[in-house]
Simulated scan of single mutants.
Amino acid sequence: MSFWQTMRAVGWSFFGVRKSADYEKDVNQLNPVHLIIAGLIGAAVFVTVLVVLVKWVITSGVAA
């Protein structure tokens, strides 16, 4: 599996919406190194988006 296919599989797993057949296919084809790197990138992007969103809400006065 290519790295981008691994990123897609990790992205779908973050949302928890994988078909059983797709999950089984991914388990048999994923490269463990790609999986770890994709997971770290996905987690970093998720945390960054949350931090930016919180800073935006605080500075815009929406939370007041």
Rank of each mutant, 00 (worst) to 15 (best):
D26C: 14
F15A: 13
W4T: 15
V52F: 05
S20E: 13
K19Q: 09
I36F: 07
F14S: 13
A21I: 14
A21M: 08
E24I: 07
G61R: 11
L40I: 13
G16H: 10
F3H: 02
L30A: 11
G42E: 08
S20R: 11
L50P: 00
A44I: 12
M1A: 12
S2G: 07
T59Y: 09
I37P: 02
Y23S: 12
G42Y: 01
F46V: 14
W56A: 14
S13Y: 00
F46D: 14
G16L: 11
G16V: 13
L40H: 01
R8H: 07
T48Q: 02
A44Y: 00
A63Y: 07
W12F: 12
V52M: 11
V10A: 10
V27A: 14
I41L: 15
A38P: 05
S60C: 03
I37W: 01
F3G: 00
V45F: 08
A43V: 12
V49Q: 08
V52S: 01
V45W: 01
A64I: 03
A38K: 05
G42L: 03
V47Q: 06
V47R: 04
V62E: 07
T6L: 01
A38N: 06
A44T: 15
V33M: 09
W4Q: 14
E24Q: 10
I58H: 02
L53A: 15
M1Y: 02
L40K: 07
A38E: 00
G39N: 09
A43M: 07
N31F: 05
D22M: 06
I36D: 02
G42K: 05
K19L: 06
W56I: 07
E24W: 09
T59W: 06
S13H: 07
A21S: 12
R18F: 12
L35M: 12
D26V: 09
P32Y: 06
V47T: 11
H34N: 10
A21R: 15
F14H: 14
I37L: 13
V27L: 15
M7T: 04
W4L: 13
L30Q: 04
A43Q: 07
V45I: 15
V52A: 12
P32C: 08
I36L: 13
